[in-house]
Amino acid sequence: MKKTIYVLLTSLFITAASCSKGSEGTKTPGKTTGGKTETETPSFTAADATTAYTAFNRYYYNPTARLYYSTTLQDGLGAIWTQAIYWDMAMNVYERTKDNAQLNMVKDMYQGGFNQYDGYNWDNTTTWFIYDDMMWWVMALARAHQLTGNQEYLQKAIAGFNRVWDGSYDPVDGGMFWDFKHSGKNACINFPTVIAAMRLYKITGDAAYFDKAKSVYNWAKTNLVDANGRVADHKIGNNAPGYEDYTYNQGTAIGAAYALYKETKDNAFMADAKLYADYTKNKMCTNGILPAEGDFNEQGVLKAIFAQYITQLINEGGQTQYLDWIKTNVNTGWNNRDKARNLTWRNYALPAATGVMQSYESSSIVTFMQLVPTK
């Protein structure tokens, strides 16, 4: 991704100020108990999940390019790495609905990426200018193969993984560099590498992927995570880790730990996943609401990545203690949508913007809605 890890203090201040307003969403009259009237945020439905995705496509999808615009102005495509996140969203919708038309959407988006990004030519250093951009696509390509059985998707995923591993992995000190210049080792390449490696291991049975996943996870846990489950954004050389709280780093750490737990049944990995989730819930939220990342930049997509892995922990891992928290976020964000367009945005706690919006900031609630159970 085009890195925005060094966020301006001004942007942080705006985000914190917006988030500090808490969960003041649209409320409906609730029940009366003990003479005190309570209010409840309306719960979203499966129909709402479809409505949200339909609106997202109406305002952001380019059917010619078969990829997504960056804004409602529809004057340019979104960043290369975010298209892989939107492809994940399309797969989520298909898994929820089992609609054949949505399966065609999944196939169309693969072709859109093929056309736009030099046939997934991983050696093109103009198209691909950073390792984690590639790895987001490798993860999605492996998942698309799992969903469809398409061998072309698998071969592209394997080639992409090998390209990143050969260029990014540090055979001396361990861990993955995020950029071609090897300026630092970031969470956004290390934990996704674990997830991608575990997917390829499950598909191919090649134990080398499993070994690589364990090696990278061990490095990342040792160098990028503190005792409270806080995931650092990066580590540069022998310097101390750079701790900047981002939901996607917490999310991919959850996903990496859970993937290893699912394979090994080692409870230490499950404990890690819960620790990362607990930090996000208890330290990164205001009144339970996730931070409003993405002040008109690509960070708006971060919570869409978090959605993938916290819901996996809930739905597959049985960690339902997080469900009410996540539902509160989804319901608050959906009820604060721009109701004229049914577009959601990055700051769940406040009414959505009504002017120009970015696909990045509109994506996370839509993603959550495909993944969170409605009953």
Rank of each mutant, 00 (worst) to 15 (best):
C188G: 12
D118C: 09
A52I: 03
D206P: 00
F210N: 12
G237S: 09
K21G: 00
G175F: 08
P171V: 08
K262M: 05
V372L: 10
A353K: 08
L313C: 10
K274H: 05
D48T: 01
C285N: 09
A259H: 02
L313F: 05
D226Q: 13
W165V: 00
Q250V: 00
F180W: 07
E298A: 06
T71K: 06
A142N: 10
N297S: 05
L343A: 04
D173S: 13
Y261E: 06
Q116W: 14
I236D: 13
Q83W: 07
Q358D: 13
N287I: 09
N57K: 15
L147S: 05
N331D: 14
R143I: 01
N100H: 15
W87T: 02
K214T: 15
Q146D: 09
M270I: 08
W128N: 01
L103P: 01
I326M: 11
A47L: 12
L260K: 05
T50Y: 14
A256C: 11
A157N: 06
G113L: 09
L302Q: 11
T82W: 14
N239S: 15
F44S: 07
D226N: 15
I80E: 08
A213D: 06
I365G: 00
S20Q: 14
Y53T: 06
F296H: 11
I130Y: 13
A352R: 03
Y169N: 09
T4F: 13
L154P: 03
Y279M: 00
A340I: 03
S11D: 13
M139S: 11
Y209A: 02
R66P: 00
A140T: 15
K2Y: 07
R341F: 05
Q116D: 08
L9F: 07
A271N: 14
G30L: 01
H145Q: 13
V216S: 02
A16M: 06
Y131P: 03
V106I: 10
V138M: 05
I310L: 07
I326F: 08
Y59L: 02
H234R: 15
N297F: 02
N186T: 07
Q151N: 15
K2H: 13
T328A: 14
E361M: 02
Y169F: 12
D123L: 07
D338G: 01
W128D: 09
N267V: 10
K21W: 10
G251Y: 09
L154F: 02
N121E: 12
G205N: 03
T4I: 15
G34F: 01
S23L: 10
T222P: 04
T54K: 12
L8M: 10
G333Q: 07
V356H: 00
L12Y: 09
S70Y: 07
A220F: 04
A304K: 05
F191L: 07
S183T: 15
G288M: 03
V93T: 11
Y110S: 12
G288P: 00
T45A: 06
A307Q: 10
A16N: 13
P241E: 08
T125L: 08
G25R: 02
T222W: 12
Y120M: 05
